[in-house]
Design a protein around this nucleic acid. Structure first.
Lengths: 151, 151
DNA sequence: CGAAGTAGTTTGCATATCTCCACTATACTG
DNA sequence: CAGTATAGTGGAGATATGCAAACTACTTCG
């Protein structure tokens, strides 16, 4: 069964499992987004949590990565900077660009939001062994280790 | 009780990995949604793929599960039924309600969209062993086995 | 039986986001 | 240099979605 078609089936199965996970978390994500910061639109949370997961980046990278247009991204980044959630510094190699990163406060807020949301998820793994849970975390870590290679 | 702190760290790590995965897939999801069906809004794809992952359900369950309100859900379900992507049947135990399920065409379209999107993801697991990939699929399956218990 | 509650639909309105476009500042190319 | 391309910002109008309320059909409870 270690054939090419088995491999393809495995990849399809991975796609379906990722789909299930994303579907299952979508409601929570949207609700978290709404409560991330009272003065911000939901999409701001998508930007913040991408920066939390993948680190500092240029606004256009962020826009591409989260699937928003540059205009909205720019506006939201501006608001988050005004609220002290993000810091921006000029890009070292290209003075047209900037690099945005979460501030300490921004990181704390994302972490708090994720943990709050995660509570509704922890019940599912309550019966898991530490080994299985650790394995899943490690494998997901490998899966998301690289920044998305977007089209 | 002292072992719970390691456990809690594991759970936090799981939350962060899920966050990374959801963040990484968000752009792809949004783009897939736009191309799922030319005459449908993006959110229709969220409904369709939830049904694909978790099977037939009542409209209100769907709305709750994907984090949309009942009115938008109802409208989108109506459009998808008109396009033949969904079938609806009266709920067996409560004639106020209905149960919606993907039609064969709807299932095919979701599968095609997922596979198309997945291609951009498969590159990441190309170097993985079948064992590791199978393990991840199995663990994700356990994680998403139950329908979301929403609050 | 009647009253109250629930599932689903529909409508009107508010808001968030997208699309396109223009503009500035900087980078690259010939 | 001059001309073109790119990063980021901002605006105007269009669309998608959320929210609240009304309405029908059905269920449940007293």
């Amino acid at each position: 069964m270690q054939t090419t078609s088995g491999r393809h089936d495995l990849e399809l199965a991975l796609g379906e499992q990722i789909n299930a996970l994303v579907s299952a978390t979508r409601a929570l994500s949207e609700r978290s987004a709404a409560t991330f910061h009272p003065q911000l639109q939901p999409a701001a949370f998508h930007i913040a949590r991408w920066l939390y997961a993948f680190g500092p980046a240029r606004p256009s990278q962020v826009a591409e990565a989260v699937g928003m247009d540059r205009s909205s991204t720019s506006t939201l980044i501006g608001k988050m900077r005004a609220l002290g959630l993000l810091d921006a510094s000029p890009a070292p190699e290209d003075r047209r660009g900037t690099v945005v990163r979460l501030s300490a406060d921004g990181r704390d807020r994302v972490a708090a939001t994720l943990e709050e949301r995660g509570k509704e998820f922890y019940g599912r793994v309550r019966s898991w062994s530490d080994d299985d849970l650790g394995r899943l975390v490690a494998l997901l870590g490998r899966l998301t280790a690289e920044r998305p290679a977007l089209s």
